[in-house]
Every structure is written in structure tokens, then in C-alpha cells.
Amino acid sequence: MKRIFPMPIHSLMLTLVWLLLNGWSYGQLFLGLFLGLMIPIVAYPYVRGHTSVKKPLAMLVYLLLLLWDIVVANVDVARRILMPNKHLKPGWIAYPLSLQEDFPATVLASSISLTPGTVSVEFAEDMSCLYIHVLHLDNETSLKAFIAKRYEQPLKEIFGC
């Protein structure tokens, strides 16, 4: 079983994306299933050891929350762009990272980049912290607490680490 379906969720995703791109028909379904089966078999040796999602439902809730935050982020950043430059107080923070695995840390960094006025720029060498550039830095501690509560805590639960 493991040899035929090394990554069942990926197989399903690939088939689904193939059908989204090419429209529905039985021929396309067959081709999509074929690709969905073959690509994971070829790709599996390279991605082995990734952390897997333990709670898919929590992941969905997280993604919806993130989507909402992206909308808020855009309005916020648009407002700051339209204001004169002298009101801008950019700054750097080093966010202490407690997620150590590659994949969850990447998801966290991407979430931070997509949301209000923050872009993650560099990881520390020992993964102890994440350097973030903030477009408007008012209160460093409250921002760190916000990231920890809103993104890192749910991600820990989702990936079970």
C-alpha cells in the first residue's frame, strides 16, 4: 500500500488541480488519476521526512483566518503607503522561534509575510529566531505576542509539535 500510494493526499490534490485546469470529463479524470499516482511515486524519495498535517480541519480554519488577515493587511498597508513618508516608522524584530521543523517554520514565515506590514527576511543559523522587517513598528512586545498567539500556536497544534 505504501509503495503504491506513498502520498495519498498529494495524489488527490494533483488529480483535483488537473481537473480544475482542464475541465471535467472522464478522459481527463483518467489522465489526472494517472498523473496523481505517478508523480508521488517519482517525487516521494525527495520529500521524505516532511512534517505532516495532523489536523486538517484546524488547517482549514487557520487558512480562513489567514485570508481575513490578508485583507486587513492590504487595507492597512495601502493606508500607510498613501500617508506621507515621515509618519513611517520601519523597524526590525527578531522573533523567537519555537517551531523547529522546516515545513512548519516555512508556513509560519509565509503567513508573517502575507499579513499586516511584516515581511520575514532571514532565519538565524540555528533556527532560534526569525528576522522580520516591519513597515510600522509601534510596540515590539505586543507584535511578538500577536504572532505567537495568532499564528504560531495554531500551527503547533496543526503539525503536532
Binding site: N74, L88, G117, V121, H133, L135
Partner: peptide, 19 residues
């Protein structure tokens, strides 16, 4: 165009353009 340095400019397109 308007923001003063590279790192502040980095915020503008990556955010506003995705939405």
C-alpha cells in the same frame, strides 16, 4: 515609487498586488 528604502518597498508589491 514612493517608499524611501528597499525594505519598506518590499512591503508594497508583495501585499497590495496579491489582493
Amino acid at each position: 515609487v514612493k517608499l524611501p528604502d528597499f525594505f519598506t518597498r518590499l512591503h508594497a508589491p508583495t501585499k497590495a498586488s496579491t489582493l
